[in-house]
Design a protein around this nucleic acid. Structure first.
Lengths: 208, 208
DNA sequence: GCTAAAATCACCCTTTTTGGGTGATCCTTC
DNA sequence: GAAGGATCACCCAAAAAGGGTGATTTTAGC
């Protein structure tokens, strides 16, 4: 027989929590096993709840959602967590994703989107609302008008990965002096005079 | 009056191209102004086509979609480009996103998803299919079982950003010797003996 | 085919940074 | 009160960085 997908809600707004609960319970193979108004209230029950998916609000009394994330991950390593919040600042999104959230939805998401997202993350997939996708995609975008040449970019990239000039020279089959020469040009173009500044500037301007 | 959203398709499969064209033309405010079987055929017309959104296949005869991306971006800086392909390898996804694609859809996407995506990217939003979202989210995930302490992580992170030990000491208001001490412990924990190796290992294992 | 930009290498020089060893003190947290 | 974490100290030699100045060769755009 097919087991239902076990879902836990952690959301401090009573109306919303009940709304999500009824929404998700109406889905054939979904079962909201429990719902809590805060992580502090939820934590001692999570282990017995054995959720497959947790919908987690960020703003909550006591331990907030992002703070709770690593603890949940630790007690339930196989649970998939979807952040469900009104906030969509890059900082919060990135923190949630680095902490291992499987999804990040803003609360304007449609019922269908939420149901889709739960199903998606339960199989190890990813789910995010379009505004979050925008933020994430933006973070990947490189500056296409870099003043650095291909070779210079290659070398600066290696410097940013901690390689020394001799190592770079060796890897690229060129002389150390050539690397030095490129680095000097990089410094001039970026108007800096040290590795740290070069990396900082290049990252800020998205040249690397 | 409201202008229609001008769309251009670049897709080498005739059947698919016609299918997308008819799908998108059926949308009230969408207008497929032209469609091409390759970028090489499209390039001289793109400027006059003035598309708002371009659906771009990767696999094509001649210049492929990813190679074409920077050129399109250059001639049409305000056009939004959606990659529409069968491939979803991390490498291709990241390359497309760094090159400035506004969306990345795999070809198993439903008609509704494609229409949504076009509308979304046209307003500067992001769009990706769930399998792509999984790849992208995965790339953010940090290892929550790092052997490094908070301070060690902080310091290794700064090393990875090119800072020298004296600079780090200064920024963190601690002595250089303390930084050295942390670095030594980091090297022991990671079983390495240079910055480059430490950064490499830490990035591979997602400790930073 | 010419010209400019990019990539390559050379040698001058001093200062800074690195990495290894060995040890000690002071918190905090369980 | 014990352990792990964070702090600082002093030994040392080797490595790397950065600044200046100049030259050659390759590649790419008009």
């Amino acid at each position: 027989m097919n087991q239902s997908l076990r879902i836990v809600l952690i959301e401090d707004d009573d109306i919303l929590r009940m709304g999500y609960e009824s929404l998700l319970n109406d889905v054939e193979d979904f079962a909201v096993v429990n719902s809590y108004a805060s992580y502090d209230l939820a934590k001692k029950h999570l282990e017995t709840d054995q959720p497959d998916v947790i919908l987690l609000d960020i703003q909550m009394p006591g331990t907030n959602g992002l703070q709770a994330l690593p603890f949940i991950k630790k007690t339930l390593p196989n649970a998939h967590i979807i952040i469900l919040t009104v906030f969509d600042s890059p900082e919060l999104v990135f923190e949630a994703l680095t902490m291992g959230a499987g999804g990040y939805l803003t609360k304007n998401s449609s019922a269908a989107k939420i149901i889709d997202a739960v199903r998606e993350v339960s199989t190890g997939g990813g789910a995010m609302s379009t505004n979050v996708a925008r933020i994430v995609m933006h973070s990947f975008q490189k500056n296409l008008n870099s003043p650095l040449t291909k070779r210079e970019t290659e070398i600066l990239d290696r410097i940013a990965n901690g390689q020394t000039k001799p190592q770079i020279a060796n890897d690229l089959f060129i002389d150390q002096e050539t690397v030095r020469s490129h680095v000097k040009n990089i410094y001039i173009k970026l108007d800096v005079n040290s590795k740290a500044e070069a990396i900082k500037t290049a990252k800020e301007k998205r040249f690397i």
